[in-house]
């Protein structure tokens, strides 16, 4: 089981968030372009605000999955942002979750993930992400072009698992 509360900076030191934002913009645009069905599955929950807190990183993310203007922005941990859903877990757990490498119900049973707020929106997001066929992480890595090799090595390092395209 994870320990919550304290932040243990992972491998990212105090990363200036403005450097992270173009990557996050790229991720959102990539998902919007490649997986438009995700918004159908989200239904009305596409208008909700999701706060995603990787507990071992010094920032959190705000996801607004509205299909017309989806956005994913990073904020430092001292910022207060109104949200409908709060999701927190270790970064690697969140990564495995969006990549369908682990079962969210099992994480919940084991208390490895914390979910607060609008459960309907959370369930819709989980099911929408789970309907992606391929590895979202791998596809994202590939989408970085020349930077895909170092990005892949970084993700492999974090997950501790070799990653193949299949």
């Amino acid at each position: 089981m994870e320990e919550e509360g304290e932040v243990y900076p992972l491998y990212l030191p105090s990363l200036p968030l403005f450097l992270l934002q173009p990557i996050l913009n790229h991720i959102v645009e990539f998902v919007r372009r490649k997986n438009p069905d995700i918004f159908m599955r989200l239904g009305p929950s596409a208008n909700k605000i999701f706060l995603i807190n990787p507990t071992d990183l010094p920032f959190f993310l705000i996801l607004k999955p509205n299909h017309l203007r989806p956005s994913l922005r990073a904020y430092n941990n001292k910022t207060i942002i109104d949200h409908d859903v709060y999701i927190s877990a270790k970064f690697i757990t969140l990564l495995k979750l969006i990549d369908a490498q682990t079962d969210s119900d099992a994480l919940f049973f084991n208390r490895d993930i914390k979910i607060l707020g609008d459960s309907e929106a959370m369930v819709a997001l989980r099911n929408a992400l789970d309907d992606l066929d391929d590895s979202l992480a791998q596809n994202l890595i590939d989408s970085f072009g020349l930077l895909s090799a170092p990005a892949g090595k970084f993700i492999n390092f974090l997950t501790g698992k070799p990653r193949s395209k299949n």
């Binding site: 914390k114 979910i115 607060l116 369930v123 819709a124």
Partner: peptide, 12 residues
């Protein structure tokens, strides 16, 4: 799910 809410008390 629309009726389900999770909350955390002061003792987590």
């Amino acid at each position: 799910a629309e009726f389900v809410r999770y909350e955390e008390d002061e003792n987590h």
